[in-house]
Nucleic acid binder design. Structure first.
Lengths: 342, 342
DNA sequence: TGTAGTGGGATAAAAAACGACCCACTAGTG
DNA sequence: CACTAGTGGGTCGTTTTTTATCCCACTACA
C-alpha cells in the first residue's frame, strides 16, 4: 500500500533533504534562540549562505523572526516543528533505526535523535528534550528517581517542568561526587531537576570511592542509610553510560589501577561496575551509590548517551542492561551500533 | 489547528507549485499515453525543457516509463496519481471552489477539474473521468439513463466500464439527431456508452425538430412512443449545457429565428428550451426528446460543461436546474462563475 | 565605552537551468 | 514497401540563479 506522504515523496524526491535541513535549522533556532546566522552556521557545520537561504524562507513563512539580538522561533514555527517531528524522524529513517536497535539490543524502547554529537554539540539539547519527554511520561505520584551525573543526563534539566497531579517526586543522587566539575555532578543535577519540577531532592555529599575502612564507617551514618533506603525504593533511574577509560580518569584512578582495568579489558562503566566487551563484570568499586541489583528492580530506566566514541561502551553495557531500559542516543552513535551488530 | 500537510507547506512553500505541475504532467501522461515530450508540451502549454525536466525526474522515480512510442505511466505512477488527487485538489483550492459553487448555485455537488479547456483540450478527458466516476457511483439495477449529445458528454465514454452487479442498465438517447456530426450525437453516444458498460441502449433516429404536422404524426409511431415511455421512467440524465447561439447554429436555425432568439435574450439551451440570463424560458422548440418536467423527476442528473465561453449559459441554466444536479466543470469556468456571483 | 555578535546589503564568481536544436529510430499509414 | 510524423536521447551556447565572501550600521551587554 502507498500512503499519501510516500506518494508525495515519489513525486517530489528532492523535497526530502530539503525538509530535513529546514527542519533541522528551524529546530536549532528554537533550541538556541536568539541566535545569529554565523553562530548557527558554525554550530550546524553549514555555510553561512546555506543558513541564510533557509532562514530567509522561514522568515517569509512566519516561522522565524529576526530581531536585533538574533533569530527566534515564532509560535507558528514551534507548531510546525511539533507537527512535523514524526514525519521527519520517519523519513530520515530514525524511527526504523530505533526499532532495529530496540530488537537487537533487547531494550524496551530506543529513541534516535538526528545529528552527530561530535560534529554538533546542540544534539545534546535534542537528546535532553526527548529524554525529558520520555521521563515526564513515566512519572507518577510518590516516585523516587535516582539520577547519575554526566553531560548527557544534565541535558534533561532545561526541559523538565512540573506535571499536573504530580505529588511527592523525590530526586536522589545515585552516586557520590566524582572529580571537581560541579555542573555535571549527580548532586547538582538532582537539585536542578527538583527545582525545575517543583519536587524534592536528596543529595549525597560524599566522595564516591572510599577506603574499606571509611566505607564501613559510613554505612552506619544516618545520612548515608537514609539515601540507601531511597535506593531500595527507587522507581526510576536516569543515567548515562560511560566509557571505562573516561570514567577512570574522572575518578582520578591511579595509573596502576588504570593499567589493571585495561588488562582486564574494561570497556564500559555504570553504577560503579566495569564491564568488558562481552558485558561481563571485570571490576567493581565499592561505591556509595545505587547498586546494579537495585537498578534492575526499577520500573523505569532511562539511559542517555551520545557520540560515536561511546559506541564500544554502549555495546558492552547493553549486554547486561535491564530490559526495561529506554535508551536515547544520537544518530551517529545509533548508526555505528547498527553497523556493528549486523 | 495545524495539520501535517499544512505544516509541510509552511516549511516547504515552493513545494506547492512543483507538486501541482508534476501532478498535472504525470496525469496528462496517463491520459494521453503513449505521448512524446513535444506533443505533451504543446498540449499543456509548457516549454519542452520544462516537460523534459519533470519527466526525467518522474522516470527516475519509476512513475513513468519511456518507450520508443512515447512515455507511459507505470502502475506506480497511477497509484501516486490516485493517492495524491485529494491533496492536489485541496491545495489548488479546487475543492473549496467546488463547495462555494455548490452553495451559490444551489446544486447537490459541484466538481471542479484543474485546467482551462480553452488552453488545453485534455481537460476534457479529466472532465470525462470525473463525470464517469460520479455516474458509476450512482447507478443501480434496472436503471434508465437518458443521454444528450455534445463533446463534454462524449468525454465520459472512455472511462465507462461494467460495474459489479449492474443489471439491465439502459441508455436512451435524450433527443433526436442534430446537425451532421455523428460522433457527438446522442444516438452515437448511447451506443458507445452501452457497449463500454455491457448494457442496453435505445436510439432515436429522428430529426430533433419537426414541423407541427410531422410532430403530431410521429407521436403515435411505436418507435417514438417506446422512447417516450423510457423518458417517463428515466432515473438518471447525463447532459451538457449549450450556449443558445451555439445550439441554434448547430440546429441550422434560420437567420430569422436566430434574430428572434437574440431579441428575446436567449443565453442558454437545454432539452429544447432556451433560457435568458435570468433563467426564464424565452423559447421552446417542439422537440422529440426528453422534456424538462421529466428531467426534474430524475433521481440523478449529471451536467457536464467546460470552457469560459459557456459561463453565461451555465449561469442562466443553473437558475432553473433541478437541485439534484451534479455539475462537473473545469477550473477556468468555475473561477469565472465564482467571480460573477460575488 | 568597547566589543562581540546581530541582520541586512552588495558583488563577483560559479553553477545550474534553459532553450533550441540535431540525431537515429520506429510505429503506423498509404 | 516506402514514407512520414512522432518518438526519446544528446549536445551546446546562453541565460538565469545560486553561492561565497565580504562590508556595514546597529545593539545588547559587560
Amino acid at each position: 500500500m502507498l500512503t499519501v506522504p510516500e506518494a508525495q515523496r515519489r513525486l517530489l524526491p528532492e523535497m526530502n533533504p530539503l525538509l530535513q535541513s529546514r527542519y533541522r535549522i528551524l529546530q536549532s533556532v528554537q533550541l538556541m534562540q536568539p541566535i545569529g546566522r554565523r553562530t548557527l552556521a558554525e554550530s550546524l557545520k553549514m555555510t553561512e549562505r546555506e543558513i541564510r537561504k533557509v532562514t530567509d524562507i522561514l522568515r517569509e513563512q512566519g516561522l522565524l523572526d529576526s530581531q536585533k539580538s538574533g533569530m527566534v522561533c515564532t509560535s507558528d514555527g514551534e507548531l510546525v516543528i511539533e507537527q512535523l517531528r514524526a514525519l521527519v524522524y520517519e523519513w530520515s529513517g530514525l524511527t526504523q533505526l530505533g526499532k532495529a536497535l530496540e530488537q537487537q539490543l533487547g531494550l524496551q524502547h530506543v529513541l534516535v535523535v538526528p545529528g552527530d554529537y561530535n560534529d554538533d554539540e546542540t544534539v545534546l539539547t535534542l537528546l535532553g528534550k526527548e529524554a525529558a519527554q520520555q521521563f515526564l511520561l513515566t512519572i507518577a505520584n510518590e516516585q523516587v528517581v535516582a539520577v547519575t551525573g554526566g553531560k548527557s543526563v544534565a541535558s534533561l534539566a532545561q526541559f523538565l517542568q512540573p506535571v499536573d497531579h504530580q505529588q511527592n517526586i523525590t530526586f536522589v543522587a545515585a552516586r557520590g561526587g566524582i572529580g571537581h566539575e560541579m555542573h555535571m555532578q549527580a548532586n547538582t543535577l538532582v537539585a536542578t531537576f527538583a527545582m525545575q519540577m517543583d519536587a524534592q531532592h536528596r543529595t549525597l555529599f560524599l566522595p564516591e570511592h572510599l577506603s574499606e575502612q571509611a566505607y564501613q564507617a559510613m554505612l552506619t551514618e544516618p545520612m548515608v542509610t537514609e539515601i540507601m533506603a531511597y535506593y531500595d525504593r527507587a522507581d526510576c533511574v536516569i543515567h548515562g553510560i560511560g566509557s571505562a577509560e573516561e570514567m577512570a580518569i574522572r575518578r582520578n584512578t591511579s595509573a596502576e589501577d588504570l593499567r589493571i582495568l585495561e588488562e582486564k579489558g574494561a570497556v564500559s562503566e555504570a553504577f560503579g561496575y566495569y564491564f568488558n566487551a562481552e558485558g561481563q563484570i571485570v571490576h567493581r568499586i565499592r561505591t556509595i551509590g545505587i547498586q546494579l541489583e537495585q537498578v534492575e528492580k526499577c520500573k523505569h530506566i532511562i539511559a542517555v548517551a551520545a557520540g560515536k566514541q561511546k559506541v564500544n561502551a554502549m555495546l558492552s553495557y547493553f549486554k547486561v542492561a535491564p530490559k526495561q531500559t529506554i535508551f536515547i542516543t544520537d544518530e551517529a552513535a545509533a548508526k555505528a551500533i547498527a553497523e556493528r551488530l549486523l
